[in-house]
Design a protein around this nucleic acid. Sequence first.
RNA 1: GGGCGAUUAGCUCAGUUGGUAGAGCGCAACAUUGACGUUGUUGAUGUCAGAGGUUCGAGUCCUCUAUCGCCCACCA
Length: 753
Amino acid sequence: MPEDIHPKLLKPYNPQETEDRLYKKWNESHLFNPDECIAQGITSPSAPHFSIVMPPPNVTGTLHVGHALGLTIEDIMVRFHRMKGERTLWLPGTDHAAIATQVKVEEGLYKKEGKTRFDYSREEFLGLVRDFAQNSHDTIVNQVKRMGASVDWSREAYTLDEKREKAVRTAFKRMYDAGLIYQGHRIVNWDPKLKTTVSDEEIDWAEEKTPLYYLKYGPFVIATARPETKFGDKYVVMHPDDKRYAKYKHRETVEVPWINGTVTATIIKDESIDMEFGTGVMTITPWHDNTDFDIAQRHTLDKEQIIDFDGKLLPIAGDLAGQHIKKARPLVIEKLQNLGLIEKIDETYVHNIAKNSRGGGVIEPQIKKQWFIAVNKEFAMGPSKINGIKEGDTVTLKKLMLAAVENGQVNFVPERFSKIYFHWVNNLRDWCISRQIWFGHRIPVWYKTGTAGKTEEIYCDIEAPVGEGWEQDSDTLDTWFSSGLWTFSTLGWPDETPDFQNFHPTSVLETAYDIIFFWVARMILMSTYLIGDVPFKHVYIHGLVLDGQGRKMSKSLGNITDPLVMIDKYGTDATRLSLIIGTGPGNDSKFSEEKTRGYKHFANKIWNATRFVLSNTADMSWDSLFAKGANAGVMPEYNAEDQAHRDALTALVVEVTGDIENFRYYLAAEKLYHYFWHTFADQIIEQKKTALNATSTAPEDVKNRKSAQRLLMEILVTVLKLMHPFIPFVTEEIWSLLPLTQKRILMVETWPQ
RNA sequence: GGGCGAUUAGCUCAGUUGGUAGAGCGCAACAUUGACGUUGUUGAUGUCAGAGGUUCGAGUCCUCUAUCGCCCACCA
């Protein structure tokens, strides 16, 4: 073994010794920052821009393998474009995740001390949440670094920091002034446990076996799964075409003996009634049911609240008032039985119940005053860069959201996700943006209350109003309001900063499909309205990372893979490859530790091949290949066989470059793996051993030897560059060991052509 | 009820615009003190879910069916 081989290469590759050191080196070079790349003469100021914002992880704990996959894909994009010489920005940040974070803290308090947030003042409680969020933030930042993510930390953002607060308030005010944000009494999803509303998207539906009660209601029999809500029912609804009830006229009234005495019931004919279900007749509870609310709206019927916001019955329930609805049901049944109002009970019925997916309780729809964004309200478009929509055109937010994708300005990868997007947007209802939790952006609206206790004045602005007697709205905003602004709030908006001008719209948004509605759609809404432009050109969607058996990873199954554990065992590069290879865009993938171990072997294979190349080229000058100008050496000539290998390498460069540009990371990575191991190591190196070992000084032998040496060097150098976006650590470490006198760190070397 | 996806070797999955079925792991045999603790070579295994259609030609495009998975809607 020649003496000038670096001693490190004599042992197997050790990621544990390498990775943190290299990340520090990259970070301290400041070259994650595109401005520094220009300052250091690496990137041309006139180069095209490439920018992505990191989907901000929730500060609710730690990153999981899904995050690891996303970060890997994003880092591949970013490192590739940076090496291509583009002005490349990857902007990191975290999300305060309002309700999710608050719930986490509340759960902890309850477990540890048996307290709820109402045992604290608002400010005390928020202090606890902030501490928790800070801890979580620090953990996440460390994890992002360990993934090798080449993000510009100098631009790090948080959805709840001061700059983002300004953006949020500006956005709110603009939409409020335009009449697109309004306050209204509407039926919302109320969680009596967490004492807040949640959006439709935050609800999980679960099946529950609940008896279906058939109750006598005057001349009718109605079927209900929730008899405890029926006290005040005074509308009986049936389908207009139902022949069984043809003799009853719309709006006709009948006297009906009911739970707490006789009521006057009004007959309503409505087409939403399913004639097949139950008896084809039902009574409605508009205050606590979406469908019933809609029926009541259509026929302008009275609505009455039955259940309070704690989940207890109101005085309308008579002697059951004050009972919690869970306890009230058997009591109502008993009462109905005594009154002889129960016709029959269907015990086989399965009812769908709505639960708050953020760890809350069973949703009780309520009519409540909330803030909404009007998605169907027409307005005149402002300055527009949306294709097909001009300034002054009459549009709605929904129309803007559709146009941005229909016209191809925003392009989904894979394309099929645009269908899901369209379907969702087309059925979108006004977005309830107010929450009754404490952690989050407080609504920038202040009220002045008069002596009679009535609101006399409403004020909405970025800053609080001056003067006495103003009180801020106690609600906070849905967390997705602030994340909807993420592509531009992170770049300095509403100020016209250079970052905003340079890097918006962003190039690609990389995210998981389960967040298309929550986030992608909301970003398109906010950006098209507030900026008149799309937030990003491409949306790259990745799938779920499942366990080895194809199951979703979850705490209850105990099948969660911690990316840090894999990194500790096999290194970041191996972890990244195992997440990427075999995972097409939008498809779920299974995580396998075996696969990860295999890619650790690959890192070592590269390491060993490097040792072979270095020890067999020690008598050659690498600078003859790579130095420019006066330092350039004489390049050995290729023989025909090696020229063919060189041409194949060029073909690989073209292919891999095309794959990366077209979002086929899984293919590019696999091709590189295959080329390195099975073409370069197994075939080319084996084939060249004879030429390299030849000691003869015959001109032909010397030529073949030099040719082989050049080939090995060129392949190694080229493939290290090609592989760097995928496996940045081992390639950078090897790069640092190459005896090149003129080289940058690999991260900012130029992409091969 | 509406929609989306999957179905290819024992397992996990590729197969980019239609042109002779691929990889990794596993399996079998052989070789190997080697650049390689983590090696190589060779090999076996496929009605590409099923049926029909378009085409000179279909794993790939179209139609239908089956099974599995997911999303949306949510019937009181």
